[in-house]
Structure formats: structure tokens, C-alpha cells
């Protein structure tokens, strides 16, 4: 992460200076704190709300139910934590909520899932295999109903706001499949 981060910043500095954009760069540095706050605060607020809902779902047994539905798939996907039903339940809920395009509701369950994986982590500042697999699944973002894009298309006067969906679904499925295959071959070789 350190190398990636420093390279991005130094590369941008170098290119920006060459292009004479030093004012913009300096301005960005000054305002980044405020911008992060504006970005993180609403995100945390929405996550808090859905955290509350998820807690009710957990107490009512809804999460455990989803875990049982997806159990064989989850045990194959995350063999290292196959006996931790609570964490697997959160993973299951995260996958299913993401499919409905409710990214903000999927986040709190995803965070609970990764916190559950961290409990089994012998080296707390290093990612485990399960975490990498779970994140690859999330960055692929399997969404069957991309609600925000549909809403935008309608807002901009599309006559056919939904016809792109099957193609987006195929694209997102292939992204996740390739990601999971690469992860499996690379990280689970032994």
C-alpha cells in the first residue's frame, strides 16, 4: 500500500508541475481534509442506520438463515473460516444485499464479516486469505439491480432505462469469476 500510495502522489506532483497545475495541486492538498469529512460523514451515518437494521436481522435469525442457504458455496469460497457460522452469515448477507444494489446496506454487514475474519488472524496487520477472497468478491461488486444507474438513466430521459442491465450483470459476473479464479490459483495453491 505504501509504495502504491507514494507512487501515485509523487507521479501526480511531477506531472502536475510539468503541466503548470501547481495551483490546483496546492489547493487539493489544503482542502483534502474537509472533502474527506464531507465524504465520510454521510457514509458513516447511513452505515449506522443499516448497522441497526442488521442487528435486528441477526437477533431474528435472518442472517443465520442466509448462511444456511449459501453454506456449501461459502465453505468452498472461504475454507479457512468454514466453522465460523456467524462470520459466514455476514458474508452471505453481504453478497445477497449487494445483488440488490443496496451498497450502503451491504457495507455494515461486510464490515462485520471482515471483523469476524480478523478474530482468526494470527498477524493482525496482515490480510488473511479469506479477507483477500472476500474483498475480491466485493470489488467485483456483483449487482443484479444497479438501482443508482437506473435512476440516473431515467433522470436523463432514457427511453429504455433498463435494457443495459443483463449486459451489466454478465460483465459484473465475469469480473467476479475472473477475480475469484485468479485468487484461488494464486493464494490457495498449496
Amino acid at each position: 500500500m505504501t509504495k502504491f500510495w507514494c507512487t501515485l502522489i509523487l507521479g501526480s506532483f511531477a506531472y502536475g508541475l510539468m503541466q503548470g497545475r501547481v495551483d490546483l495541486i496546492s489547493n487539493t492538498i489544503v482542502t483534502v481534509g474537509e472533502e474527506t469529512l464531507e465524504f465520510v460523514l454521510p457514509m458513516v451515518a447511513v452505515t449506522c442506520f443499516f448497522s441497526g437494521i442488521v442487528e435486528i436481522a441477526k437477533e431474528g435469525g435472518c442472517i443465520a438463515f442466509l448462511e444456511r442457504c449459501l453454506s456449501p458455496f461459502l465453505r468452498f469460497l472461504l475454507p479457512d473460516i468454514k466453522d465460523d457460522h456467524e462470520t459466514l452469515g455476514y458474508v452471505a448477507a453481504n453478497i445477497i444485499i449487494n445483488m440488490f444494489g443496496l451498497g450502503s446496506a451491504a457495507t455494515p454487514v461486510g464490515l462485520k464479516a471482515i471483523a469476524g475474519m480478523q478474530k482468526h488472524n494470527p498477524e493482525p496487520n496482515r490480510a488473511t486469505r479469506s479477507m483477500v477472497t472476500f474483498l475480491v468478491l466485493n470489488t467485483g461488486g456483483v449487482t443484479l439491480f444497479p438501482t443508482s444507474i437506473i435512476a440516473l438513466r431515467v433522470a436523463y430521459g432514457s427511453l429504455d432505462a433498463t435494457s443495459f442491465i443483463p449486459f451489466a450483470v454478465i460483465a459484473t459476473l465475469s469480473a467476479s469469476c475472473i477475480g475469484l479464479i485468479v485468487d484461488r490459483l494464486w493464494n490457495h495453491a498449496h
Partner: peptide
Amino acid sequence: QGSTDTTLYVITLYFGSVGVKKIRNSMFIG
């Protein structure tokens, strides 16, 4: 836009929340 999620954001948020700094090959695979 619908084909994938924002990889860098997902990795920052999830690993940040548990304090993992060595993210192994997750960024690359993402």
C-alpha cells in the same frame, strides 16, 4: 459503471476498518 465496484474504495474501507496494512495481492487481483 455497473460492471464493477470501486476497488480502491472497497479495499481502503474494509482493511481500514480492521487496521490491516499489509493487503497482500488483493489490490492487484481486484
